[in-house]
Design a protein around this nucleic acid. Structure first.
Lengths: 225, 225
DNA sequence: ACGATAATTCGATGGAGAACGAATCGTGGA
DNA sequence: TCCACGATTCGTTCTCCATCGAATTATCGT
Protein backbone atom coordinates (compact mmCIF):
# COMPACT_ATOMS: atom_id res chain seq x y z
CA UNK A 1 0.00 0.00 0.00
CA UNK A 2 1.69 3.16 -1.19
CA UNK A 3 1.54 6.39 0.79
CA UNK A 4 -0.72 9.00 -0.83
CA UNK A 5 0.66 12.50 -1.52
CA UNK A 6 -1.47 14.13 1.14
CA UNK A 7 0.17 11.93 3.76
CA UNK A 8 3.69 13.10 2.97
CA UNK A 9 2.61 16.73 3.19
CA UNK A 10 0.60 16.08 6.32
CA UNK A 11 3.59 14.41 7.95
CA UNK A 12 5.71 17.45 7.18
CA UNK A 13 3.23 19.78 8.84
CA UNK A 14 2.44 17.32 11.59
CA UNK A 15 5.71 17.60 13.47
CA UNK A 16 5.49 20.25 16.23
CA UNK A 17 8.87 21.85 15.58
CA UNK A 18 8.22 22.05 11.84
CA UNK A 19 4.73 23.42 12.46
CA UNK A 20 6.19 26.17 14.63
CA UNK A 21 8.63 27.08 11.87
CA UNK A 22 5.89 27.16 9.25
CA UNK A 23 3.76 29.24 11.57
CA UNK A 24 6.63 31.70 12.00
CA UNK A 25 6.87 32.01 8.21
CA UNK A 26 3.16 32.62 7.73
CA UNK A 27 3.71 36.37 7.71
CA UNK A 28 5.43 35.98 4.36
CA UNK A 29 8.84 37.16 5.51
CA UNK A 30 12.03 35.15 5.00
CA UNK A 31 13.89 33.95 8.08
CA UNK A 32 17.32 32.38 8.51
CA UNK A 33 17.84 28.83 9.67
CA UNK A 34 19.04 29.98 13.09
CA UNK A 35 16.07 32.23 13.63
CA UNK A 36 13.74 29.39 12.77
CA UNK A 37 15.60 27.07 15.14
CA UNK A 38 15.09 29.55 17.97
CA UNK A 39 11.41 29.96 17.11
CA UNK A 40 10.90 26.23 17.29
CA UNK A 41 12.97 25.86 20.43
CA UNK A 42 15.38 23.31 18.98
CA UNK A 43 19.09 23.22 18.17
CA UNK A 44 20.46 24.30 14.82
CA UNK A 45 21.39 20.79 13.76
CA UNK A 46 17.88 19.53 14.27
CA UNK A 47 16.41 22.57 12.56
CA UNK A 48 18.71 22.04 9.61
CA UNK A 49 17.35 18.54 9.08
CA UNK A 50 13.76 19.78 9.36
CA UNK A 51 14.36 22.63 6.95
CA UNK A 52 15.94 20.29 4.44
CA UNK A 53 12.86 18.07 4.53
CA UNK A 54 10.47 21.01 4.25
CA UNK A 55 12.37 22.46 1.31
CA UNK A 56 12.63 19.09 -0.35
CA UNK A 57 8.88 18.66 0.07
CA UNK A 58 8.20 21.97 -1.64
CA UNK A 59 6.76 23.67 1.43
CA UNK A 60 9.65 26.12 1.67
CA UNK A 61 11.80 27.90 -0.83
CA UNK A 62 15.42 28.68 -0.14
CA UNK A 63 17.46 31.75 -0.92
CA UNK A 64 21.18 31.81 -0.18
CA UNK A 65 22.67 35.11 0.79
CA UNK A 66 26.28 34.97 1.86
CA UNK A 67 26.60 32.57 4.71
CA UNK A 68 22.94 32.97 5.58
CA UNK A 69 20.11 30.81 4.30
CA UNK A 70 16.78 32.51 4.10
CA UNK A 71 13.68 30.38 4.07
CA UNK A 72 10.23 31.50 3.07
CA UNK A 73 6.95 29.76 2.29
CA UNK A 74 6.94 27.86 -0.99
CA UNK A 75 4.06 29.76 -2.50
CA UNK A 76 0.43 30.76 -2.30
CA UNK A 77 -0.77 27.17 -2.28
CA UNK A 78 1.33 26.43 0.78
CA UNK A 79 -0.08 29.44 2.58
CA UNK A 80 -3.57 28.34 1.57
CA UNK A 81 -3.05 24.91 3.09
CA UNK A 82 -1.77 26.37 6.34
CA UNK A 83 -4.66 28.83 6.47
CA UNK A 84 -7.23 26.09 6.03
CA UNK A 85 -5.48 24.04 8.70
CA UNK A 86 -5.67 26.98 11.09
CA UNK A 87 -9.32 27.45 10.27
CA UNK A 88 -9.96 23.84 11.15
CA UNK A 89 -7.78 24.02 14.24
CA UNK A 90 -9.60 27.01 15.64
CA UNK A 91 -12.95 25.30 15.38
CA UNK A 92 -12.03 22.86 18.12
CA UNK A 93 -9.70 24.75 20.39
CA UNK A 94 -11.88 27.58 21.58
CA UNK A 95 -8.84 28.88 23.43
CA UNK A 96 -7.91 31.44 20.82
CA UNK A 97 -11.52 32.31 20.16
CA UNK A 98 -11.84 33.17 23.83
CA UNK A 99 -9.48 36.08 23.40
CA UNK A 100 -11.00 37.97 20.47
CA UNK A 101 -9.20 41.18 21.42
CA UNK A 102 -5.73 39.89 20.72
CA UNK A 103 -3.62 42.04 18.38
CA UNK A 104 -3.40 39.21 15.88
CA UNK A 105 -7.15 39.07 15.51
CA UNK A 106 -7.31 42.80 14.97
CA UNK A 107 -4.86 42.88 12.08
CA UNK A 108 -2.17 40.51 10.89
CA UNK A 109 -0.37 39.52 7.74
CA UNK A 110 -1.48 36.31 6.07
CA UNK A 111 1.38 35.23 3.80
CA UNK A 112 1.56 38.44 1.78
CA UNK A 113 -1.81 40.07 2.30
CA UNK A 114 -3.87 41.55 5.12
CA UNK A 115 -6.02 39.43 7.44
CA UNK A 116 -7.89 39.82 10.71
CA UNK A 117 -10.74 42.19 11.43
CA UNK A 118 -9.03 44.94 9.46
CA UNK A 119 -8.58 42.65 6.46
CA UNK A 120 -12.24 41.68 6.52
CA UNK A 121 -13.32 45.30 6.95
CA UNK A 122 -11.14 46.29 4.02
CA UNK A 123 -12.80 43.80 1.70
CA UNK A 124 -16.21 44.88 2.98
CA UNK A 125 -15.31 48.47 2.25
CA UNK A 126 -14.07 47.77 -1.29
CA UNK A 127 -17.15 45.70 -1.86
CA UNK A 128 -19.69 48.06 -0.29
CA UNK A 129 -18.41 51.07 -2.20
CA UNK A 130 -18.51 49.22 -5.49
CA UNK A 131 -14.76 49.27 -6.01
CA UNK A 132 -14.59 45.60 -6.95
CA UNK A 133 -16.68 43.69 -9.41
CA UNK A 134 -16.89 40.10 -10.36
CA UNK A 135 -16.56 39.18 -13.98
CA UNK A 136 -17.63 35.58 -13.92
CA UNK A 137 -15.54 33.82 -11.34
CA UNK A 138 -12.86 36.47 -11.37
CA UNK A 139 -12.51 39.50 -9.14
CA UNK A 140 -11.81 42.75 -10.96
CA UNK A 141 -11.56 46.43 -10.16
CA UNK A 142 -14.50 48.62 -11.14
CA UNK A 143 -13.83 52.06 -12.65
CA UNK A 144 -14.20 53.65 -9.22
CA UNK A 145 -11.84 51.04 -7.82
CA UNK A 146 -9.28 51.79 -10.48
CA UNK A 147 -9.52 55.44 -9.51
CA UNK A 148 -9.05 54.63 -5.83
CA UNK A 149 -5.94 52.57 -6.47
CA UNK A 150 -4.55 55.29 -8.70
CA UNK A 151 -5.02 57.75 -5.81
CA UNK A 152 -3.17 55.35 -3.56
CA UNK A 153 -0.38 55.27 -6.13
CA UNK A 154 -0.69 51.53 -6.62
CA UNK A 155 0.07 50.40 -10.16
CA UNK A 156 -2.71 47.84 -10.42
CA UNK A 157 -2.28 47.50 -14.17
CA UNK A 158 1.09 45.83 -13.79
CA UNK A 159 -0.53 43.17 -11.63
CA UNK A 160 -2.85 41.98 -14.36
CA UNK A 161 -2.13 39.28 -16.89
CA UNK A 162 0.42 37.61 -14.63
CA UNK A 163 0.46 33.98 -13.81
CA UNK A 164 -0.68 34.77 -10.31
CA UNK A 165 -4.38 35.44 -9.86
CA UNK A 166 -5.11 39.16 -9.84
CA UNK A 167 -7.46 39.08 -6.87
CA UNK A 168 -9.08 36.29 -4.96
CA UNK A 169 -10.82 35.68 -1.67
CA UNK A 170 -9.16 34.02 1.29
CA UNK A 171 -11.14 32.65 4.22
CA UNK A 172 -10.02 34.24 7.47
CA UNK A 173 -9.49 31.65 10.20
CA UNK A 174 -10.18 34.01 13.07
CA UNK A 175 -13.09 35.98 11.63
CA UNK A 176 -14.69 33.22 9.56
CA UNK A 177 -15.19 35.73 6.78
CA UNK A 178 -13.37 36.48 3.58
CA UNK A 179 -10.56 38.93 3.08
CA UNK A 180 -8.73 40.03 -0.05
CA UNK A 181 -5.83 37.91 -1.33
CA UNK A 182 -3.99 37.52 -4.62
CA UNK A 183 -1.75 40.06 -6.31
CA UNK A 184 -4.06 42.94 -5.45
CA UNK A 185 -4.18 42.00 -1.78
CA UNK A 186 -0.41 41.69 -1.70
CA UNK A 187 0.02 45.08 -3.33
CA UNK A 188 -2.30 46.67 -0.78
CA UNK A 189 -0.43 45.24 2.19
CA UNK A 190 2.88 46.28 0.66
CA UNK A 191 1.50 49.78 0.29
CA UNK A 192 0.31 49.89 3.89
CA UNK A 193 3.72 48.81 5.14
CA UNK A 194 5.72 51.08 2.84
CA UNK A 195 3.68 54.11 3.78
CA UNK A 196 3.67 53.10 7.44
CA UNK A 197 -0.07 52.83 7.76
CA UNK A 198 0.74 49.58 9.53
CA UNK A 199 3.89 48.45 11.34
CA UNK A 200 4.91 44.95 12.29
CA UNK A 201 4.68 44.14 15.95
CA UNK A 202 7.83 42.37 17.07
CA UNK A 203 8.16 38.79 15.98
CA UNK A 204 4.45 38.05 15.70
CA UNK A 205 2.21 38.32 12.68
CA UNK A 206 0.31 41.16 14.32
CA UNK A 207 0.17 44.54 12.56
CA UNK A 208 -0.41 47.76 14.49
CA UNK A 209 -2.03 50.78 12.84
CA UNK A 210 -0.19 54.07 13.13
CA UNK A 211 -1.87 57.45 13.40
CA UNK A 212 -1.20 57.99 9.75
CA UNK A 213 -2.78 54.63 9.06
CA UNK A 214 -5.87 55.51 11.05
CA UNK A 215 -6.29 58.65 8.99
CA UNK A 216 -5.66 56.77 5.75
CA UNK A 217 -8.09 53.95 6.44
CA UNK A 218 -10.74 56.50 7.38
CA UNK A 219 -10.12 58.73 4.39
CA UNK A 220 -9.80 56.15 1.65
CA UNK A 221 -11.81 53.22 2.99
CA UNK A 222 -14.17 54.76 5.55
CA UNK A 223 -12.88 52.38 8.19
CA UNK A 224 -12.38 53.58 11.76
CA UNK A 225 -9.63 51.46 13.27
CA UNK B 1 7.32 24.65 23.53
CA UNK B 2 3.68 23.73 23.02
CA UNK B 3 2.49 22.03 19.84
CA UNK B 4 0.45 24.36 17.62
CA UNK B 5 -3.02 23.24 16.45
CA UNK B 6 -1.93 22.80 12.86
CA UNK B 7 0.60 20.21 13.97
CA UNK B 8 -1.99 17.96 15.59
CA UNK B 9 -4.14 18.05 12.48
CA UNK B 10 -1.16 17.57 10.23
CA UNK B 11 -0.06 14.56 12.23
CA UNK B 12 -3.51 13.03 11.83
CA UNK B 13 -3.38 13.42 8.06
CA UNK B 14 0.30 12.57 7.89
CA UNK B 15 0.00 8.88 8.66
CA UNK B 16 -0.30 6.81 5.45
CA UNK B 17 -3.06 4.51 6.64
CA UNK B 18 -5.12 7.41 7.95
CA UNK B 19 -4.54 9.37 4.77
CA UNK B 20 -5.84 6.46 2.72
CA UNK B 21 -8.96 6.33 4.83
CA UNK B 22 -9.54 10.06 4.51
CA UNK B 23 -8.97 9.78 0.79
CA UNK B 24 -11.58 7.02 0.59
CA UNK B 25 -14.07 9.28 2.37
CA UNK B 26 -13.45 12.24 0.07
CA UNK B 27 -16.43 11.31 -2.07
CA UNK B 28 -18.70 12.28 0.80
CA UNK B 29 -20.10 8.83 1.41
CA UNK B 30 -20.05 7.14 4.80
CA UNK B 31 -18.07 3.91 5.16
CA UNK B 32 -17.91 1.34 7.92
CA UNK B 33 -14.83 0.71 10.01
CA UNK B 34 -14.14 -2.59 8.28
CA UNK B 35 -14.43 -1.10 4.80
CA UNK B 36 -11.98 1.61 5.79
CA UNK B 37 -9.60 -0.95 7.24
CA UNK B 38 -9.60 -2.82 3.91
CA UNK B 39 -9.06 0.39 1.96
CA UNK B 40 -6.04 1.22 4.06
CA UNK B 41 -4.70 -2.33 3.96
CA UNK B 42 -4.54 -2.75 7.73
CA UNK B 43 -6.27 -4.94 10.30
CA UNK B 44 -9.47 -3.90 12.02
CA UNK B 45 -7.85 -3.34 15.37
CA UNK B 46 -5.36 -0.90 13.92
CA UNK B 47 -8.07 0.84 11.93
CA UNK B 48 -10.18 1.14 15.04
CA UNK B 49 -7.42 3.03 16.81
CA UNK B 50 -6.89 5.31 13.82
CA UNK B 51 -10.58 6.04 13.46
CA UNK B 52 -10.87 6.88 17.13
CA UNK B 53 -8.08 9.41 16.79
CA UNK B 54 -9.54 10.92 13.62
CA UNK B 55 -12.97 11.23 15.19
CA UNK B 56 -11.53 12.65 18.36
CA UNK B 57 -9.64 15.19 16.32
CA UNK B 58 -12.80 16.32 14.56
CA UNK B 59 -11.77 15.11 11.13
CA UNK B 60 -14.46 12.44 11.03
CA UNK B 61 -17.99 12.24 12.31
CA UNK B 62 -19.46 8.99 13.51
CA UNK B 63 -22.92 7.53 13.05
CA UNK B 64 -23.86 4.30 14.78
CA UNK B 65 -26.27 2.06 12.98
CA UNK B 66 -26.83 -1.27 14.61
CA UNK B 67 -23.54 -3.05 14.93
CA UNK B 68 -22.01 -0.96 12.17
CA UNK B 69 -20.14 2.26 12.62
CA UNK B 70 -20.35 4.63 9.70
CA UNK B 71 -17.67 7.25 9.36
CA UNK B 72 -17.83 10.29 7.12
CA UNK B 73 -15.82 13.47 6.80
CA UNK B 74 -16.29 15.92 9.65
CA UNK B 75 -17.53 18.75 7.48
CA UNK B 76 -16.86 21.13 4.65
CA UNK B 77 -13.76 22.56 6.32
CA UNK B 78 -12.21 19.11 6.51
CA UNK B 79 -12.91 18.51 2.84
CA UNK B 80 -11.41 21.91 2.06
CA UNK B 81 -8.20 21.04 3.88
CA UNK B 82 -7.88 17.74 2.06
CA UNK B 83 -8.58 19.40 -1.27
CA UNK B 84 -5.89 22.00 -0.73
CA UNK B 85 -3.49 19.27 0.33
CA UNK B 86 -4.22 17.40 -2.89
CA UNK B 87 -3.72 20.56 -4.89
CA UNK B 88 -0.32 21.00 -3.30
CA UNK B 89 0.53 17.34 -3.68
CA UNK B 90 -0.20 17.33 -7.39
CA UNK B 91 2.11 20.23 -8.03
CA UNK B 92 5.13 18.14 -7.22
CA UNK B 93 4.20 14.63 -8.30
CA UNK B 94 3.54 15.11 -11.96
CA UNK B 95 2.58 11.44 -12.08
CA UNK B 96 -1.15 12.06 -11.92
CA UNK B 97 -0.89 15.06 -14.21
CA UNK B 98 0.64 12.79 -16.80
CA UNK B 99 -2.59 10.88 -17.17
CA UNK B 100 -5.14 13.63 -17.81
CA UNK B 101 -7.59 11.20 -19.37
CA UNK B 102 -8.25 9.27 -16.19
CA UNK B 103 -11.93 8.89 -15.22
CA UNK B 104 -11.35 10.77 -12.00
CA UNK B 105 -10.11 13.81 -13.85
CA UNK B 106 -13.13 13.72 -16.13
CA UNK B 107 -15.70 13.79 -13.36
CA UNK B 108 -15.60 12.94 -9.67
CA UNK B 109 -17.31 13.81 -6.45
CA UNK B 110 -15.48 16.20 -4.16
CA UNK B 111 -17.01 15.74 -0.70
CA UNK B 112 -20.61 16.42 -1.69
CA UNK B 113 -20.33 18.33 -4.95
CA UNK B 114 -19.07 17.80 -8.48
CA UNK B 115 -15.41 18.19 -9.46
CA UNK B 116 -13.16 17.38 -12.40
CA UNK B 117 -13.49 18.66 -15.94
CA UNK B 118 -17.26 18.29 -15.81
CA UNK B 119 -17.45 20.25 -12.55
CA UNK B 120 -15.40 23.06 -14.02
CA UNK B 121 -17.45 23.03 -17.23
CA UNK B 122 -20.64 23.19 -15.19
CA UNK B 123 -19.53 26.31 -13.36
CA UNK B 124 -18.38 27.84 -16.65
CA UNK B 125 -21.79 27.12 -18.11
CA UNK B 126 -23.73 28.60 -15.20
CA UNK B 127 -21.45 31.56 -15.31
CA UNK B 128 -21.40 32.06 -19.08
CA UNK B 129 -25.16 31.93 -19.39
CA UNK B 130 -25.64 34.43 -16.60
CA UNK B 131 -27.30 31.99 -14.23
CA UNK B 132 -25.19 33.02 -11.26
CA UNK B 133 -24.41 36.47 -10.00
CA UNK B 134 -22.20 37.75 -7.29
CA UNK B 135 -23.69 40.03 -4.70
CA UNK B 136 -20.59 41.33 -2.99
CA UNK B 137 -18.57 38.34 -1.91
CA UNK B 138 -21.53 35.99 -2.11
CA UNK B 139 -22.64 33.83 -5.00
CA UNK B 140 -26.34 34.02 -5.83
CA UNK B 141 -28.72 32.76 -8.49
CA UNK B 142 -29.84 35.24 -11.12
CA UNK B 143 -33.50 35.22 -12.25
CA UNK B 144 -32.56 33.02 -15.20
CA UNK B 145 -30.67 30.75 -12.83
CA UNK B 146 -33.67 30.48 -10.54
CA UNK B 147 -35.73 29.47 -13.54
CA UNK B 148 -33.21 26.83 -14.58
CA UNK B 149 -33.14 25.25 -11.15
CA UNK B 150 -36.92 25.27 -11.03
CA UNK B 151 -36.92 23.38 -14.34
CA UNK B 152 -34.53 20.87 -12.84
CA UNK B 153 -36.92 20.52 -9.91
CA UNK B 154 -34.32 21.63 -7.37
CA UNK B 155 -35.76 23.55 -4.47
CA UNK B 156 -33.02 26.14 -4.24
CA UNK B 157 -35.06 28.33 -1.89
CA UNK B 158 -34.80 25.84 0.93
CA UNK B 159 -31.03 26.02 0.67
CA UNK B 160 -30.87 29.70 1.49
CA UNK B 161 -30.57 31.22 4.93
CA UNK B 162 -28.97 28.11 6.36
CA UNK B 163 -25.80 28.08 8.35
CA UNK B 164 -24.01 26.52 5.42
CA UNK B 165 -22.94 28.87 2.66
CA UNK B 166 -25.42 28.83 -0.22
CA UNK B 167 -22.85 28.66 -2.98
CA UNK B 168 -19.11 29.03 -3.01
CA UNK B 169 -16.15 28.28 -5.23
CA UNK B 170 -13.81 25.36 -4.66
CA UNK B 171 -10.43 25.11 -6.33
CA UNK B 172 -10.14 21.93 -8.35
CA UNK B 173 -6.85 20.15 -7.70
CA UNK B 174 -6.70 18.43 -11.06
CA UNK B 175 -7.94 21.23 -13.31
CA UNK B 176 -6.52 24.17 -11.37
CA UNK B 177 -9.79 25.99 -11.94
CA UNK B 178 -12.84 26.62 -9.80
CA UNK B 179 -15.92 24.48 -9.57
CA UNK B 180 -19.19 25.02 -7.70
CA UNK B 181 -19.39 24.01 -4.02
CA UNK B 182 -21.63 24.86 -1.09
CA UNK B 183 -25.26 23.91 -0.63
CA UNK B 184 -26.09 24.62 -4.27
CA UNK B 185 -23.25 22.47 -5.54
CA UNK B 186 -24.30 19.66 -3.22
CA UNK B 187 -27.92 19.89 -4.40
CA UNK B 188 -26.81 19.72 -8.02
CA UNK B 189 -24.71 16.60 -7.51
CA UNK B 190 -27.52 14.99 -5.53
CA UNK B 191 -29.85 15.73 -8.45
CA UNK B 192 -27.44 14.24 -10.97
CA UNK B 193 -27.13 11.06 -8.93
CA UNK B 194 -30.83 10.72 -8.15
CA UNK B 195 -31.82 11.15 -11.77
CA UNK B 196 -28.97 8.95 -12.91
CA UNK B 197 -27.25 11.54 -15.04
CA UNK B 198 -24.12 10.27 -13.33
CA UNK B 199 -23.37 6.94 -11.66
CA UNK B 200 -20.60 6.10 -9.26
CA UNK B 201 -17.83 3.99 -10.67
CA UNK B 202 -16.99 1.21 -8.25
CA UNK B 203 -15.08 2.22 -5.19
CA UNK B 204 -13.39 5.26 -6.67
CA UNK B 205 -14.51 8.85 -6.64
CA UNK B 206 -15.00 8.74 -10.40
CA UNK B 207 -18.45 9.49 -11.84
CA UNK B 208 -19.53 8.18 -15.22
CA UNK B 209 -22.13 10.00 -17.33
CA UNK B 210 -25.07 7.93 -18.57
CA UNK B 211 -26.83 8.51 -21.88
CA UNK B 212 -29.55 10.33 -20.05
CA UNK B 213 -26.89 12.43 -18.38
CA UNK B 214 -25.32 13.29 -21.71
CA UNK B 215 -28.67 14.50 -22.98
CA UNK B 216 -29.35 16.43 -19.79
CA UNK B 217 -26.00 18.20 -19.69
CA UNK B 218 -26.41 19.16 -23.33
CA UNK B 219 -29.98 20.32 -22.97
CA UNK B 220 -29.76 22.27 -19.72
CA UNK B 221 -26.12 23.32 -19.59
CA UNK B 222 -24.96 23.15 -23.21
CA UNK B 223 -22.14 20.83 -22.23
CA UNK B 224 -21.15 17.96 -24.50
CA UNK B 225 -19.72 15.25 -22.30
C1' DA C 1 -31.07 -18.12 24.35
C1' DC C 2 -27.20 -18.81 21.17
C1' DG C 3 -24.02 -18.47 17.54
C1' DA C 4 -22.24 -15.02 14.05
C1' DT C 5 -20.38 -10.80 12.88
C1' DA C 6 -18.76 -5.88 13.84
C1' DA C 7 -15.88 -3.41 16.59
C1' DT C 8 -13.01 -2.38 20.56
C1' DT C 9 -9.50 -2.97 24.28
C1' DC C 10 -5.18 -4.78 26.01
C1' DG C 11 -0.38 -6.11 25.79
C1' DA C 12 3.85 -6.76 23.42
C1' DT C 13 6.87 -5.83 19.52
C1' DG C 14 9.27 -3.26 16.22
C1' DG C 15 10.64 0.56 13.43
C1' DA C 16 10.78 5.29 12.04
C1' DG C 17 12.58 9.55 13.06
C1' DA C 18 13.41 13.52 16.35
C1' DA C 19 16.92 15.05 19.23
C1' DC C 20 21.64 16.38 20.45
C1' DG C 21 27.03 16.30 20.79
C1' DA C 22 30.90 16.55 18.07
C1' DA C 23 33.11 17.29 13.97
C1' DT C 24 33.16 19.39 9.28
C1' DC C 25 32.17 22.62 5.48
C1' DG C 26 31.68 27.42 3.57
C1' DT C 27 31.59 32.23 3.57
C1' DG C 28 32.79 36.88 5.27
C1' DG C 29 35.66 39.97 7.78
C1' DA C 30 40.08 41.47 9.91
C1' DT D 1 46.04 34.04 5.96
C1' DC D 2 43.53 33.12 9.90
C1' DC D 3 39.62 33.45 12.74
C1' DA D 4 34.60 33.81 13.55
C1' DC D 5 30.17 32.42 12.60
C1' DG D 6 26.33 30.25 10.05
C1' DA D 7 24.99 25.89 8.57
C1' DT D 8 25.40 20.96 7.60
C1' DT D 9 26.76 16.03 8.27
C1' DC D 10 27.50 12.00 11.07
C1' DG D 11 26.64 8.80 14.76
C1' DT D 12 24.07 7.65 18.78
C1' DT D 13 20.28 7.60 21.86
C1' DC D 14 15.61 7.57 22.94
C1' DT D 15 10.78 8.33 22.60
C1' DC D 16 6.59 7.73 20.23
C1' DC D 17 3.30 5.11 17.96
C1' DA D 18 1.80 1.91 14.25
C1' DT D 19 1.01 -2.82 14.10
C1' DC D 20 -0.84 -7.27 15.17
C1' DG D 21 -2.47 -11.43 18.18
C1' DA D 22 -5.62 -12.51 21.53
C1' DA D 23 -9.37 -11.61 24.29
C1' DT D 24 -13.64 -8.82 25.16
C1' DT D 25 -17.87 -6.16 24.25
C1' DA D 26 -21.88 -5.14 21.50
C1' DT D 27 -25.54 -6.05 18.31
C1' DC D 28 -28.10 -8.67 14.91
C1' DG D 29 -30.52 -12.81 13.14
C1' DT D 30 -32.65 -17.05 14.05
Amino acid sequence: METPPIASIGALVGEPARALMLDALMDGRALTASELADRAGITRQTASAHLARLTDGGLLSLERQGRHRYFRLGGEEVAAVLESLMLLGERRSSAALARPRSPERCARSCYDHLAGRLGVALLDSLDGQGHIETCGTRLLLSPSGEKLFAQLDIDWRSLQHRRRSFARLCLDWSERRHHLAGALGAALLAHFLENRWLVRSGETRALMPTDRGRRGFGEYFEISV
